[in-house]
């Protein structure tokens, strides 16, 4: 599903250049539930943005669902994003002048789904996320957790194959964070690949694979047995706290 081959990425600012990703090889299967961890500045967001075709890479190759993602027109990128990817951001990034339902329905607008129909579908998704009563509220009338659920509904409505979430719980308290993680797990249970970036070990422990980045390289990938230990230590730590 996702295949990264020796991905390099540098940010050029004036005459200095910052080498952020220094050869990433990664393979993620359909249906995986992955978290990306690493210290601040290690390149997590950069990697996720490349995965979501929001940013480009300098070297290597990236295949998504069999498509080579390189040098494509923005029109095609937009279409692929619309079909394959759903985004969830740390700062929610809802359109401030649209209410919850309209925000959720927006991706379908770009797909050309008529208004009535897309609003109906949006309501279904809002209902799934327990936000039916908030459909007509504007983003600034909602709590962080509610906004993030709206954002998730918006990411889901176009039936993507992948959900990419950059610190989806970063702006939420722990109880709300766990609610959001439960939702993401349910999404994953439906077969959608979920990739999140997080700082928090307890959040990462809820996923099925942890990719640790260090200075632009993959430091380790934790899964299976090791993951059990990881989970035990962090979930335990949580319980005693």
């Amino acid at each position: 599903m996702i295949r990264l081959n020796n991905i390099h990425k540098s940010y050029v600012m004036g005459n200095s250049s910052l080498h952020v990703l220094k050869g990433i090889d990664l393979h993620i299967e359909q249906g995986d539930f992955v978290s990306i961890m690493g210290s601040s500045g290690s390149g997590k967001s950069t990697l996720l943005n490349i995965l979501g075709m929001l940013d480009n890479y300098d070297n290597g190759s990236y295949h998504l669902s069999g498509n080579l993602i390189a040098n494509m027109s923005e029109k095609r990128a937009a279409k692929l994003r619309n079909e394959l990817v759903g985004f969830v951001f740390q700062s929610f990034n809802l359109i401030s002048f649209k209410n919850a339902m309209e925000n959720v329905a927006l991706p379908l607008y770009y797909k050309g789904v008529p208004r009535k129909k897309r609003n109906l579908i949006a309501m279904e998704y809002l209902e799934k996320l327990g936000l039916k009563d908030w459909a007509n509220h504007m983003p600034n009338e909602m709590s962080g957790g509610q906004k993030q659920r709206v954002a998730i509904a918006r990411a889901l409505i176009s039936k993507p194959k992948i959900i990419l979430a950059d610190e989806p719980t970063g702006a939420l308290d722990s109880a709300t964070s766990y609610e959001v993680m439960d939702i993401l797990r349910e999404i994953n249970d439906d077969g959608i690949t979920v990739i999140i970036v997080t700082h928090e070990h307890d959040i990462a422990a809820m996923t099925r694979q942890i990719i640790r980045l260090n200075d632009g390289r993959i430091h380790e990938i934790i899964r299976n047995g090791e993951l059990k230990n990881f989970q035990k230590s962090y979930i335990h730590g949580l319980e005693t706290a």
Binding site: K75, A78, K79, R81, N82, N93, P107, Y110, S158
Partner: peptide
Amino acid sequence: TQEIGIQRAIGATPGT
């Protein structure tokens, strides 16, 4: 700009 960025992330083409 930000609003447009978000729209593009969720599938709006430059033309739209």
